[in-house]
């Protein structure tokens, strides 16, 4: 420590007591401070008493032993630890449920906002129509194309159809399309075509009437009017042009397209609340009941599965169909909720 040599002539006990250098020396003496103050003591012999007194003051205050309370440190810590534990328990009882509740409310609010935003966003981007089991719905698209949805079916498409792009629609289940012809004669453009995405097929049409049935792994396409091109991209790619009256069946599990021996008109009979049974086996009819009307069916007479029917039956609802097959095949039908157990009477 650099010692500043002061004039100590007027120093009293109090002056030494408040002198920073002196305090430092008394409390934390080092060789330098000892040498310094020994010199001052030699230079000012009349100040020795004052210096000693000031030194005593400082030490009297500084060197006091800390107060020792009667009770112990450990007992006090135990009291503190107990109170901390009690406080935390109370907090858990009172605040934790509140905290959890507020957290849940927060999460619920966030989820709600997200849901609303998502709905808003998705409805902006996409239009969706779907039907439940046994219900039918007719949808008119922005280009006036009419789509009739059978039960348990859905379509969706981009809300805004840009004029320079082909009209595109995605479907599941069964639907009958009456596509509006927009192309001018002899001036066919990309934007004039109408694309239906079903299974992993792409159906490209102009103005046409056709029925698409996509159930299980089978997609049946029946063309009534106009022209239709089936395209399959990727593995097992193919292109097939259909003429009016053609009906084709594509099995996506086997990736094969086969011609169906069926009158396309029959495949759209459902749009008139009828069912054309020509060429249908009983098991196919039962599949329709499952796919379109939502039944679960157990056929306990397997010998009947491949039996065929002919004719048109009313099919406004499933009961009509059930009535007919019961009478024709002489069946016993036990119904438990939507579960049908069919057996030979």
């Amino acid at each position: 420590m650099e010692h500043q040599h002061s004039d100590y002539n007027h120093y009293t006990t109090t002056s030494f007591f408040k002198d920073e250098q002196f305090i430092q020396h008394v409390l934390k003496a080092d060789d330098l401070s000892v040498a310094y103050w020994e010199r001052i003591s030699g230079e000012y012999p009349d100040k020795r008493a004052a210096m000693e007194e000031a030194r005593a003051w400082i030490l009297l205050i500084n060197k006091q032993k800390p107060y020792q309370p009667a009770t112990g440190k450990l007992q006090l810590w135990d009291k503190i630890a107990n109170q901390i534990a009690a406080d935390e328990q109370r907090q858990q009882r009172v605040y934790r449920p509140l905290k959890i509740a507020s957290r849940w409310i927060g999460a619920a609010a966030a989820a709600l906002i997200l849901l609303v935003a998502l709905r808003e966003w998705s409805s902006l981007g996409e239009k969706k129509f779907s039907t439940t089991f046994g219900k039918r719905e007719q949808v008119v698209l922005p280009d006036e194309t009419v789509v009739t949805l059978n039960g348990n079916s859905a379509i969706h498409y981009a809300r805004t159809w840009k004029s320079e792009k082909p009209r595109e629609i995605w479907m599941q289940g069964e639907a009958f399309f009456e596509v509006k012809h927009v192309a001018l004669k002899n001036r066919l453009q990309q934007s004039d075509s109408f694309l239906v995405h079903v299974s992993n097929l792409e159906l490209k049409v102009l103005g046409t009437k056709f029925n698409v049935r996509n159930r299980r792994s089978i997609t049946e396409i029946s063309l009534l009017e106009g022209s239709l091109r089936i395209e399959k991209n990727g593995t097992g790619a193919f292109v097939k042009m259909l003429k009016p009256g053609d009906a084709f069946m594509y099995d996506s599990s086997k990736q094969v397209l086969t011609a169906m021996n069926r009158n396309p008109q029959a495949n759209k009979a459902w749009t008139n609340n009828e069912m054309d049974l020509d060429g249908y086996t009983l098991s196919e009819i039962l599949n329709v009941l499952e796919d379109t009307y939502g039944y679960e069916i157990s056929l306990q007479a397997p010998e009947l599965a491949q039996k065929k029917l002919s004719g048109t039956v009313p099919a406004a609802n499933a009961d009509d169909i059930l009535f007919v097959i019961r009478k024709v095949f002489n069946l016993k039908i036990d119904q438990k909720a939507n579960h049908l157990i069919i057996s030979q009477n």
Partner: peptide, 26 residues
Amino acid sequence: MDADQELAYDQTMISRERLETIRTNL
């Protein structure tokens, strides 16, 4: 806490009586 004095006394060169006076004055 009179015991403190001992410590203060050890570190000063003044007499015990003188230290007692100083302490009283302080």
